[in-house]
Design a protein around this nucleic acid. Sequence first.
DNA 1: TTTCATGAACTTGGCAACAAGGTAAATTGA
DNA 2: TCAATTTACCTTGTTGCCAAGTTCATGAAA
Lengths: 228, 228
Amino acid sequence: MLVDQILLHINKGKFAANQKLPSEHELADQFRVPRMIVRKAYERLQELGYIYSMQGKGSFVKDRKKQIPLVFSKDVSFSEKMRELYSDYYSENVGCEPIPYHTEIYPSLSTDKDEQVYKIRRLRFLGKLPIALHTSYISESLFQDIGELGNTITSMFEYYRSKGYTDVYSEKSILSVIFPTEFEREILQCSSLVPLLLLESRCLDRETGTVLEVSKIRYRSDCFTYII
Amino acid sequence: MLVDQILLHINKGKFAANQKLPSEHELADQFRVPRMIVRKAYERLQELGYIYSMQGKGSFVKDRKKQIPLVFSKDVSFSEKMRELYSDYYSENVGCEPIPYHTEIYPSLSTDKDEQVYKIRRLRFLGKLPIALHTSYISESLFQDIGELGNTITSMFEYYRSKGYTDVYSEKSILSVIFPTEFEREILQCSSLVPLLLLESRCLDRETGTVLEVSKIRYRSDCFTYII
DNA sequence: TTTCATGAACTTGGCAACAAGGTAAATTGA
DNA sequence: TCAATTTACCTTGTTGCCAAGTTCATGAAA
């Protein structure tokens, strides 16, 4: 497979960032294959985020951000942990809106069909790089002011503390791998073949056992390793 | 994006398994796009493992195995856990061979440069479906008979027990997402765009703290969710 | 000397025509 | 009537050509 071979070269560090790759014709002659094969390989590498091509100019290697270790933890807020470790970590609220009835989320929150559940999304950054999209589903019946305040929250952990829930924890998480939708590609600034780690869990108050939120976090898998 | 739209249809269950999809021409006319666009979309779906195409016949949807939950655990052997949960789980030894010096593995095992480290690979099955490739690196200095026995081991856990290490545990694991190499594609019977979960850790004897093995497990991400 | 226009030689991007494989109905021959 | 063969038409796969964008050298004009 041509893609594998080119990747090998790139990963070996044989190409510097933004260095021009051989033209499609050149590489085709070199490997004795039709240009279409090289073309497909280059297209694939583009979608994987390794190179970029410009009509008339050529194809160039992207500077590959190296994989930074992140720590998955159970008891501590993701934000708190990250702020400890990385000084340039910050969150940005990217919207709060009511959602229609959902057959899994509503029961998880012990919410009736006629009550309202809100979806609050925060984008997590490390420097200028968006690393994760955090979506929290919480019920209006438990948090009356969420409709108004939802747009301002960047840390649910702090919000819960302000409501008197001082000891919250996360349930067992379900991990799966998905590819980004168009919205996720745009907001996470990644190409279509960058897999996302989807971590689903619920957040509970330890004292009462109340389910505070259903949480879905989508992590970019290309610039991080995760310690579990 | 055309791929997203077609996937939406497939995931909605609008297409039965092995049902024929519209021909490239047909879909091109329908969406008012050149055939090449449809072609690319179909090719992508093939590589993602959703459909298959046959020259002269058409394109058909693959039957999508649903995602089965697996449990990541620290203290118990993966094999033991799986055998408890699934009756049709089994392992197959796919080779044992000495490796050349490696700058990360050797120090991890506290092994000198002139000693030999073996790579033992087992393939994990659920029914006929290969779900994971487990690679263990262990040092000959600690296990003298590994060169002869290596080809027969399907559970390292049992092997360690036979050597007197009854209480072994796994260190903190590092999780990352990779795409399969040609070898991995073949052995795991998956297409090139099926991401693999790579779980790296070390296995230690609790009593003495001896590092028994460096372990790398590659899980197919397309037919499983993982509980952590 | 400087500046701008021109065009040749490269690049990637896109498309149409062709090749090759499969199916089924129509045709042929016994 | 039945089986073998041909034919027409569908499918996906491949190839080669041309369009479009960029660069750079050349040379004429200011």
